[in-house]
Nucleic acid binder design. Structure first.
Lengths: 236, 236
DNA sequence: TTGATAAATTATACCGTTATAATTATAATG
DNA sequence: CATTATAATTATAACGGTATAATTTATCAA
């Protein structure tokens, strides 16, 4: 693990263990430098990482402060690993409805940037939180990249497997959100009624080298659907 | 304007003017250094900014590449200025339903971190795209920070006024999303029916020094509601 | 006490450099 | 020709430093 990542993790751990609240001040830069025995630029890199993740914010001339969202049980739309992290104190289970190799739909092929003759893994899952259905997920994985999947992997965390099992580096993702009304079939899976509200999230996941490897559409149960986004000033 | 911001803007302009597509390669670091006549760290800072904004991605050992989302007409959930930027080719208009000084609700007071006796500006607007209603927005501005508002400002861009008119620096924001069914009153404003789907987005906007100054809830017309989010690997 | 002014604190911009890791291109090998 | 080894390219990590801008604190004057 890189120095700056390690330091960032240490600082984050410190914040959690000491239950620091929004606005609480952290040690100043020079102090952190001495404390961790690294150069200024390394500390700055760590702090930038934490700022990007929404853990802290920095004010020139003033200091480094804790930033914490108060609401629990919300799913982050930025960490694209979703539930596993945010809802880790909640009992999440998966039911695999289908796992097969097939040809992609036109839409999937376009988003994965492959031809319609190339093979993909198709995965359809229902996710539960407590006894309630959380969402239905349909995913297409480019089989040229994600060469192998089985029921065990798919029941667990596919992304962990891609990282550790296949040794691939996951990069960025583009998500598109739509609100609409449930179709009959979707409503059945979610235990809701046709015409009820739904949130569809389409995401294209890319490797660190820019190749798209996963196109997925998740349909959320509107009753369980709470999301949050932390935006930083630079994007504005 | 800072050097690295200026360079980032130049690079972004270059990408747009030359209509570069996803995957197209930009000049290498050393070349950019020479081209802009600045040090390596400054170029790196510019590229980090563009990466954070989802404009480019970098691959070690390979190069700097263009990243572009293909779909038009989607509202970014990260640039919290919303429409003005994303939909700037679409005719967006506002109708101010109310502008008044009042005491905040308990919820607004909590989120603005003030007491219920302190004054706030209350703004209620409907936003239209083409002839369709896009959303209804209710906002509470801490009057101790946003000292003055009038109808003209509120019809235009409140955030531009806060930045330029009041000289305040806007920092980060926390947004919370819920999907639900429209109430009678909301449906009326949006030209929809009670029980139709809706997306509620609550956002707390902070100044760069961490003070919350605006708490707003936007209810979107589900028919016009298309959003996108670009996530970067570091957050994962 | 108040208000203005100066000083100290603190994060940020920017410079320059060395070392390293990932990728890609090239050469060597069978 | 395919495979492997090597070299070149390229972004990233990490060091250390000076200058600057924003904020907070201390100082002083009224």
């Amino acid at each position: 693990m890189l120095k700056y990542q390690h330091i960032a993790a240490e600082i984050e751990k410190y914040i959690q263990e000491h239950a620091l609240q929004q606005g609480d001040k952290l040690p100043v830069l020079d102090e952190l430098m001495v404390q961790f025995g690294v150069s200024k630029s390394t500390i700055i890199k760590s702090l930038e990482l934490l700022e990007e993740r929404g853990v802290i914010f920095q004010v020139r001339g003033s200091g480094i402060f804790v930033r914490r969202h108060g609401r629990k049980g919300y799913i982050s739309l930025l960490k694209n690993q979703g539930f596993t992290r945010d809802l880790d104190h909640f009992p999440i289970t998966s039911q695999v409805l289908e796992l097969s190799v097939r040809k992609p739909t036109r839409e999937a092929a376009t988003n994965l940037n492959i031809s319609m003759e190339q093979d993909v893994y198709y995965v359809k899952r229902v996710r539960y939180i407590y006894e309630q259905t959380l969402c239905v997920e349909e995913s297409y994985y480019n089989k040229a990249i994600v060469t192998y999947l089985n029921n065990e992997i798919v029941s667990d965390s596919i992304f962990d497997y891609i990282r550790e099992g296949l040794g691939l580096k996951i990069g960025f993702s583009d998500s598109y959100l739509h609100v609409g009304k449930l179709e009959e079939e979707e409503a059945g899976h979610l235990g809701l009624h046709k015409g009820d509200p739904k949130l569809d999230v389409e995401t294209i996941f890319h490797l660190a080298n820019g190749q798209p490897f996963d196109f997925s559409r998740i349909t959320y149960n509107y009753i369980q659907s709470q999301f949050f986004i932390q935006a930083n000033g630079h994007g504005m």
